[in-house]
């Protein structure tokens, strides 16, 4: 195989690229099936959770604590004011815009 012709090299190049795609597509299908199984298990678990009592459901949702010092709009959900300030400063810095030109509505920790 050391001195294959240019034509053979071309065929092998095409074949190689196809094999990479084949391997990756095979893997993708497996990952997708795996994902679907896990999502359905997750949904089933959520559905099996006991529904809250009607009284609790009827109760008006408690207002999220408002961050002190912020124009009264920003809602913080499980986020320390210090962390929120740091996040807002990072976003402003990354966007290259002054902080007072940005409007933050809520900051929530994604778990």
């Amino acid at each position: 195989m050391e001195n294959i012709s240019v034509l053979d090299a071309g065929i092998l190049a095409l074949l190689g690229y196809a094999v990479v795609f084949f391997g990756i597509i095979l893997l993708m299908v497996v990952v997708m099936v795996m994902g679907k199984i896990f999502v359905s298990i997750e949904n089933k678990k959520k559905a099996d959770l006991p529904t809250p009592a009607p009284v609790a459901a009827a109760a008006a949702p408690a207002a999220a604590p408002t961050a002190p010092g912020s124009a009264g709009e920003l809602k913080l959900h499980d986020v320390e004011p210090k962390t929120a300030a740091m996040l807002m400063a990072i976003v402003a810095d990354k966007m290259g815009k002054p902080l007072n030109e940005l409007r933050f509505i809520s900051i929530k920790e994604v778990k």
Binding site: A13, Y17, V20, F21, I25, M28, V31, G35
Partner: peptide, 18 residues
């Protein structure tokens, strides 16, 4: 998982350079 396909597409240079 579809992003796996991009990892395959980006091997083009390997085979063209070969």
């Amino acid at each position: 998982p579809k992003s796996l396909l991009l990892g395959a597409a980006a091997q083009l240079g390997v085979f063209v350079a070969f």
